[in-house]
Design a protein around this nucleic acid. Structure first.
Lengths: 163, 163
DNA sequence: AATAACCTTGACGTACGCGTTAATGTCGCA
DNA sequence: TGCGACATTAACGCGTACGTCAAGGTTATT
C-alpha cells in the first residue's frame, strides 16, 4: 500500500465519491457483494469514472448499511429488502423534483406510498421487539433456575463436608 | 381424512407421543425439516414405533419451537443453534440423573455451562433489542418527516384552490 | 385381505447469498 | 512507459436449509 488513489476530485460536483474498494472497507461487505446488490437492483447503478470504475456516493454507503441492518437485524431476504429500499428512492426523487415542482398530486401520492411502507416497517420492527422481549424474559427465568439449582448443589456440598 | 391414527397409547409411559405428521402440523415446519434437524443433530433421534415410525415427545415439540425462534428472531444458523440447544440437553440430563445422584461436581459443571450459554444468549438478545429500538426511532423520525411534508403539500393545495 | 392414510429411507433438486478464480483493463506515480 | 495497486466482467462453485420425488413399508379400519 505505497500509494493509494483517493478519487476525491470529481469533475462537476464537490461531493466525495468513493471507489468500490473504499465502500467495501467502510461498510464491511466485499466488493463482490456490492456488485451483487447492484445486479439484484438493491443499489442503483453508480456513476462511473471514465475508465469504468464505479463511483459511489455517501448515499450509496448509507443504503448499503441500511440493507445490512435489514438483513441481520430483521432477517429479511434481499427480495424483501429491495421492495423496502425502493421507498427510499422516493425520497431522493422528491428532493430532485423539489424545485421542478412536478405534479403536486403525484408527489403527494409518492409520499403517501413511502409513508405506508415505513409504517409497515415500524410494525415489523415492533413485532420483532415484542418477540425478543418475551424471549429475554424466558431466558432470564432460566437463569434464575440455574442459579437456584447451583445454590442448592452448593448447599448440599457444604452440608456433606460438615458431616 | 376419514380416520386418523392418533398414537396416544404408549406402552410404558403415560405421555402423549406424537407422530411426525402431528409435530409438523403443530410446529408449522414440514416433516422433511424435522428429519433434517435430526440429521443435523438438532433433535435427538426420537423413539420409534415397532414399525419404525418416529414418536416425538412434548419436549421435542418445545425444542423445535425454540429452534425456529432462534432462527427467525435472532437469525442464527442451524450450526449456531445446535451449539445452543445442546445446553438444553443438560437440563434433561439433570432431570434424568436427579435420582441417580451422579457426580455432584460434574452436575455443577454442567449447570454452569448451561448458565454460561444462556447468559450469552441474553447478551445477544439485548444487543438485538437495542439495535431494533434504534431502528424504530429512526423509522418514526422518518414518519414525522413524511407527515410534515404531506401537510405542507396540502397547505399549498388549499392556498392554490383559494386563489 | 384390501384399502386409505400415514410413514420410511434414499437421492436428486433448488433458491439464496454470496466466494472464487480467470483474464483483462485502468489509474497514478516514477 | 512501466510498474503496482486497484478495478472490470464472466462464469463457475459452494454452503445453508430445506423441497420434491420415488419406491416402498406400516397402521388401523372394513
Amino acid at each position: 500500500m505505497t500509494h493509494r488513489r483517493t478519487p476525491d476530485e470529481q469533475p462537476e460536483t464537490s461531493e466525495a465519491y468513493l471507489q468500490i474498494g473504499e465502500v467495501a472497507e467502510r461498510t464491511g461487505v466485499t466488493q463482490r457483494t456490492l456488485r451483487f446488490y447492484e445486479e439484484k437492483g438493491l443499489l442503483k447503478p453508480p456513476s462511473r469514472l471514465e475508465g469504468g470504475f464505479r463511483l459511489y456516493s455517501e448515499d450509496d454507503v448509507q443504503r448499503v448499511e441500511q440493507i445490512r441492518r435489514l438483513q441481520t437485524l430483521l432477517g429479511f431476504t434481499l427480495a424483501d429488502i429491495k421492495e423496502m429500499v425502493e421507498a427510499e428512492e422516493v425520497k431522493s426523487q422528491i428532493r430532485a423534483e423539489y424545485r421542478k415542482d412536478a405534479d403536486i398530486t403525484d408527489r403527494r401520492a409518492k409520499l403517501s406510498r413511502a409513508q405506508e411502507v415505513t409504517e409497515r416497517q415500524v410494525a415489523v420492527v415492533e413485532q420483532k421487539l415484542a418477540a425478543l422481549e418475551e424471549m429475554r424474559a424466558n431466558l432470564q427465568q432460566k437463569l434464575e433456575n440455574y442459579r437456584n439449582w447451583i445454590a442448592q448443589l452448593d448447599e448440599k456440598a457444604a452440608a456433606g463436608s460438615r458431616s
